[in-house]
Amino acid sequence: MLFAHDTECALTAAAALVNTDGREGEGLPDVAALDAFFAAHSYSGRHEHTKTELQAVRALRPRLRRIWHTEVDEIVSIVNGLLREHRALPQLIMHDDEPYHLHAVPRDAPLATRMAVEAAMAFADVVRSGELRRLRSCEHPDCDNVLVDLSKNRSRRFCEAGCGNRAAVSAYRARKAAALHP
């Protein structure tokens, strides 16, 4: 494991959240989609199931997306801004059969606040570890998704949306076509 478990979960969730706003259309079209996202990424605590909460979560995406497309000083500015804005106070917490991990806002804070702070704390670990090169854009030409490369050898190139399979199929077809017409 490269980072602590909660950091890896927060990084993965942040990338997934950013990717809900892409070329494929709105990935969080309604409260039900936010409910599914909440469950898929094992969030706990307050969840209001409202349009206002959905809008607040959607509003976080552009700030997080900038992290993948900027330099370290701007990343630090975004992270510090999120932490200040939400009055983050890191504390070790244990809940839901999870070992001790960091929370920086109460579990009853609004979902968008918790998502923002958890992501900011995770990105702080990435910066402190000198591992910014693990934050990447998908290499498939038709995709604008982001990813977090948590592989040991830093070899992940494609997002979770099936781009790796599409690239492999394209490469296979190109090899077959080249073999037919040498």
Rank of each mutant, 00 (worst) to 15 (best):
A171H: 09
G81Y: 00
P141R: 15
D35P: 00
H41L: 10
D73S: 12
H101K: 07
P90D: 07
N19T: 01
A59M: 07
A161S: 11
A124E: 02
K176L: 12
L102S: 12
L111W: 02
V79L: 09
R134A: 09
G22K: 03
A14C: 14
L64T: 05
L17K: 02
W68A: 06
M1H: 08
V146P: 10
N145E: 07
L17T: 07
R107E: 14
L34N: 03
L54G: 00
L132Q: 09
P99T: 10
T12L: 10
L132I: 10
E74F: 01
D144Q: 11
D108V: 06
A33R: 08
P110N: 13
A171W: 03
K51N: 11
R107G: 15
N80M: 00
V31K: 02
D144K: 08
F38S: 09
D96M: 11
D144A: 12
P182A: 15
I93F: 13
V76T: 10
I75N: 01
M115L: 12
A171S: 10
D144N: 13
G45T: 01
A33E: 00
D144I: 06
H49K: 10
D142G: 14
A122K: 05
N19K: 06
E118Y: 11
H47G: 05
T20E: 10
A112Y: 03
E139P: 06
M94F: 11
T7L: 01
N80F: 00
A168D: 03
A13V: 02
E8N: 04
M121N: 13
R84T: 11
L180Y: 06
D6E: 13
D144Y: 01
R46L: 11
N153G: 09
S137E: 10
N145I: 03
F38R: 15
D21Q: 09
P99L: 13
K51M: 06
F3G: 02
H5A: 13
E85D: 10
R84Y: 06
V169F: 03
A161P: 00
